[in-house]
Design a protein around this nucleic acid. Structure first.
Lengths: 179, 179
DNA sequence: AGCGGATTGTAGCAGGTGCTACAAGTGCGT
DNA sequence: ACGCACTTGTAGCACCTGCTACAATCCGCT
């Protein structure tokens, strides 16, 4: 009979894919359900409501991104702050992750709009990135707090520049030396 | 009889204010019209369509932000890259501008979604910021290209961190020394 | 006084939204 | 063979969306 758990786990990647293409806000139940081969009633049946669906989707995507970062981590540390920036920047600009950039932007907009759920998710992702950077900074870095904040902001800024269609400037950020 | 031009100019600030509060996507004609004291039919009458309204609004807001930056410019140059970053960062984090952060985010999301109009506007704003930074960098900066890109990314990254509710990290970015 | 642009009233269209209701099945575990 | 979670069909609710139609005004300009 295939427990609800299974159906959801089967659907979530498809939903994530659909949302990456059509946007978080552009995801309405009927087209989404059709795209992943179900009906809106089934989505409601399993997730309870659209909010429920979004909540689970957010958790799923967050976990996915975090897992990807950890997988690429491998415990190896960068030789310098700049090397660390380039490492994370290159990782995050992977074309496969590009569709999620839009989702990330929509999460931020929702968070800024006051949606606590999205803000919590966004904060969790930022915290995870911060942690990742600290783990890959040279061990002898004199000020990991400052370095992590700086690299984090640079990487996020690169994302913004990419979204704005200014990838040339983003390239320049990665090329520029760091203290 | 008050030319259409006048009505539009009178409405645009109110619309910008409404959009800053309710979001770009959350702005539908009827509630918006009611909030600024008109009817949806009048909005369509003067702007032609919702797209037309959005186009004019985008231009208006862009011009507004650019003018604000120029006004704060005053031709004075920063003494260091870090001073320049702090200058722009403090300017952009002005609480009065905070509502526009959301609009900026929505512009980026739309741009990333493939909307050429929004991408052009976003690019124009980024170009303007880039120019502003170059104009306020120390005259003897050895590599203005790299410095501008870096400061630009840092400021945009700070915006992202603020949206994500991580203003503490954003603070740390401004406090950290720059090369 | 009258012309013409601006505004309002009233009403509607066709489409989409999340969500619900009820009946009729499906197939697996017991 | 029965129960039960799951699935599908068909239909609908109340609401919102951008936009339109048509007539009735208002009001300054000539």
């Amino acid at each position: 009979m295939m427990a609800a758990q299974n159906r959801k786990e089967e659907w979530l990647p498809l939903i994530a894919n659909y949302v990456a293409q059509h946007g978080l806000g552009g995801a309405s139940l009927r087209p989404l359900a059709k795209a992943i081969g179900t009906s809106d009633r089934m989505l409601i049946y399993h997730f309870g409501s659209k909010d429920g669906l979004m909540t689970e989707l957010l958790g799923f995507v967050s976990a996915q991104v975090m897992a990807m970062l950890d997988a690429a981590a491998q415990g190896s540390r960068a030789e310098s702050r700049h090397a660390c920036l380039v490492m994370l920047g290159t990782l995050m600009r992977n074309p496969m992750l590009r569709p999620f950039l839009r989702t990330w932007g929509e999460m931020l907009v929702e968070a800024e709009g006051g949606n606590a759920l999205y803000r919590d998710s966004a904060q969790a992702i930022v915290a995870r990135l911060d942690r990742w950077i600290r783990d890959h900074l040279p061990e002898d870095d004199p000020d990991p707090d400052a370095a992590a904040a700086q690299i984090l902001a640079l990487v996020e800024g690169i994302g913004v520049l990419d979204m704005a269609g200014c990838s040339d400037i983003a390239d320049r950020v990665l090329a520029a030396p760091l203290a």
